[in-house]
Design a protein around this nucleic acid. Structure first.
Length: 637
RNA sequence: GCUGAUGUGGCUCAGGGGUAGAGCAGCGCACUCGUAAUGCGCAGGCCGUGGGUUCAAAUCCCACCAUCAGCUCCA
């Protein structure tokens, strides 16, 4: 019998009989791998374990520990979900059912409206399917046959998908028991491989993600190789929910959103302290980095917005008002105002780059269904800046902004993800200009050696952009920073500078925001720190806890001393037991508690309790003041 | 905007055609206490809003508003 050489991941070369399946190879390597193997990569292609090896090649076998394994595992779980739904609701038509980052989903079209109770039933049915251990069988079929097959069963969505596949595509279907689906694969060997499943939630989802199409019902689920992993994942989700900024925001008295102002957040005194700390820091850094600060009006004449292009490109997101019968708009962006400021003076090429920052309050009409705490609101403050410069300064200046973003995020301890967004459908300007602008951004990213992904067609209407994304507590990511190159506004507003040659020239403009929206950034801060802010940000930095009423006078004196040293301090004067006061300060997540009893009063000391560490012993008042002052100025996390 | 769910004191939630409930928080009194909950008492609600059905609606029906999950869209 002919034999072939198989090169394994660790470089080892083994010989097998031609036609051996990957499953058999896995078993031959080790019993454990034979059991845990899910899919494999054979000569660069991801395939089923049932694939037969017909020539020499490289083989990598994946288990649930590999991303490729997880993906197939979840994808197979989605097929089991679909099969279960078909058993219970035979009229169902199938959309798509891919694996996603923490699980999978499947979209269904059926008269029946799924309820949470249905999820339990479906889950039971899925477990039956798993127990039956149906093998996943792959079959490649000619295009015509596939079309006939799905047309016959009325699977109009599948038919649509097949029609759009390229002419030469290999069309494969997978069958498990009485269920059959159009699918490129690969899949795990059989339904029995799936161990722990859980259906998470129900939601509507448009067919192929377009508002114009019918809304299907989507069921989200997850699955794991072990029950313990599933439990761990569910516990993690629970933990993340406790960090939700909306929950912590009310608990800690930071902000509220009320029916009277959907999407218009109210900041409470403690939330304002947090906000002002962030803004003070921002101002200080921007001064050091050579920015000037301006403030432009919230309401401006219609003609300005017509000139800027917002009237044509952004109208559905804007609010309007009339003053003395004349149309005005509430600004949705700060740029036109900044352009007007720029135009009030003549500029020389020697002045460039001019970095003009603005904490600008903008209003945008967001659709009602998208509002989300502080993360997605209708009125927010952008930490905007417009940088006016010579075309030759573009790359250097973008790199400069990238460094500033990196520095500011590092102070808060954030990790971030970078995206480059290119020309959208609804755009102003020629393809050449867009190309040139996009290249400038790309070049800056590459020179800074920053990893980024490209988001085609997602740029602003006036130019391409680099976006910086931060993650919230349950892994959703939110755009915060953005750098946008703009060749349009300078044209529209006829911006000029006097060059070396004494002639007028056109400057280039960068729009950029780093925190993005102060509101959103604060939402992310709350979740990032789980409400336990570092001392420099904490609304109350020190809580003084007298043990009995006898220490009230000393407490008052102590508070005065701390407050005069710029430390945000409060005293708990209630006649409660010390344990009670500590518990409360702890729940308020106050970084330092100073316990004072007769002993401390006599010695002029304080007993320090740290939020995270508990009792750390006593020290003199000045020692404590020095320590905390240093911690505040260093912005220690 | 779309699909589905939810809306009861400041907060978390129970009740589900016949006089609105609990815990926590708040206030008062007593206790003066050493590192995560002292006890007793008192207040507090147009049951999201507007219509309807009914002798009677927090409860059933309709519309609207808001919130939540997701989709679409976005900082």
């Amino acid at each position: 019998m002919e034999s072939i050489k198989v090169t394994l991941k660790n470089g080892l070369i083994k010989e097998f009989t031609k036609g051996t399946t990957i499953q058999e190879v896995a078993k031959a390597i080790s019993q454990r791998l034979g059991k845990e193997a899910l899919v494999a990569k054979w000569n660069g292609k991801i395939v089923d374990l049932s694939a037969k090896l017909e020539q020499d090649g490289e083989l990598e076998i994946y288990t649930f520990d590999d991303d490729e394994g997880k993906e197939a595992y979840r994808h197979s779980s989605a097929h089991i979900l679909a099969q279960a739904v078909q058993h219970l609701f035979p009229d169902v038509k199938f959309g798509i059912g891919p694996s996603i980052s923490n699980g999978y989903y499947y979209d269904f079209d059926t008269e029946h409206v799924f309820t949470p109770e249905d999820l339990e039933l479906i889950e039971k049915e899925m477990n039956k399917i798993i127990k039956a251990d149906y093998p996943f069988e792959r079959q490649e079929v000619p295009r015509e046959e596939a079309l006939q097959l799905f047309e016959k069963s009325g699977e109009k969505y599948k038919v649509e998908l097949i029609r759009e596949l390229p002419k030469d595509a290999i069309i494969s279907i997978y069958k498990q028991g009485d269920f059959l689906d159009l699918c490129a694969g690969p899949h795990v060997p059989s339904t029995g491989k799936i161990k722990a499943i859980k259906l998470m939630n129900l939601a509507g989802a448009y067919w192929r993600g377009s508002e114009k199409n019918k809304m299907l019902q989507r069921i989200y689920g997850t699955s794991f190789a072990k029950k313990s992993q599933l439990d761990e994942y569910l516990a993690k989700l629970e933990e993340a929910k406790k960090r939700d900024h909306r929950k912590l925001g009310t608990q800690l008295g930071l902000f509220s959103i009320q029916e009277e102002g959907p999407g218009f957040p109210f900041f409470h005194p403690k939330g304002m302290v947090l906000r002002n700390q962030v803004e003070d820091f921002w101002r200080e850094v921007h001064r050091k980095w050579g920015y000037l600060e301006i403030k432009t009006p919230v309401i401006l004449n219609r003609s300005l917005w017509e000139r800027s292009g917002h009237w044509d490109h952004y109208k559905e997101n804007m609010y309007f008002t009339k003053i003395d019968e004349i149309d005005y708009a509430i600004k949705p962006m700060n740029c036109p105002g900044a352009m007007l400021v720029f135009k009030t003076e003549q500029h020389s090429y020697r002045d460039f780059p001019i970095r003009m920052a603005e904490m600008g309050l903008v209003h945008r009409h967001e659709k009602s269904g998208v509002l989300h705490g502080l993360m997605r609101v209708r009125s927010f403050t952008q930490d905007d800046a417009h940088i006016f410069m010579l075309p030759s300064q573009i790359t250097e200046e973008i790199k400069n902004v990238i460094s500033l973003v990196d520095y500011i995020y590092s102070i808060f301890g954030f990790k971030y993800r970078v995206e480059l967004s290119t020309k959208p459908e609804k755009a102003m300007g020629s393809d050449e200009i867009w190309e040139q602008a996009t290249d400038a951004l790309r070049q800056a990213l590459e020179e800074k050696e920053i990893d980024y992904t490209v988001n085609e067609g997602d740029g602003a209407f006036y130019g391409p952009k680099i976006d910086f994304h931060l993650e919230d507590s349950i892994g959703r990511d939110w755009q915060c920073g953005t750098i946008q190159l703009d060749f349009q506004m300078p044209e529209k507003f006829d911006l000029t500078y006097i060059g070396e040659d004494g002639q007028k020239h056109r400057p280039v403009v960068i729009h950029r925001a780093i925190l993005g929206s102060i509101e959103r950034f604060i939402g992310i801060l709350i979740e990032h720190y789980a409400g336990a802010f570092p001392v420099w940000l904490a609304p109350v930095q020190v809580k003084i806890l007298p043990i009995t009423d006898r220490q009230h006078e000393y407490a008052e004196e102590l508070k005065k001393r701390l407050v005069s040293g710029g430390i945000r301090s409060e005293v708990d004067y209630r006649s409660e037991k010390i344990g009670y006061k500590i518990r409360e300060a702890q729940l308020e997540k106050i970084p330092y508690m100073l316990v004072i009893g007769d002993k401390e009063t006599e010695e002029g000391k304080v007993s320090i309790r740290k939020r995270a560490e508990g009792d750390i012993g006593s020290s003199t008042v000045s020692e404590f003041v020095n320590k905390i002052t240093e911690e505040i100025s260093e912005k220690l996390v």
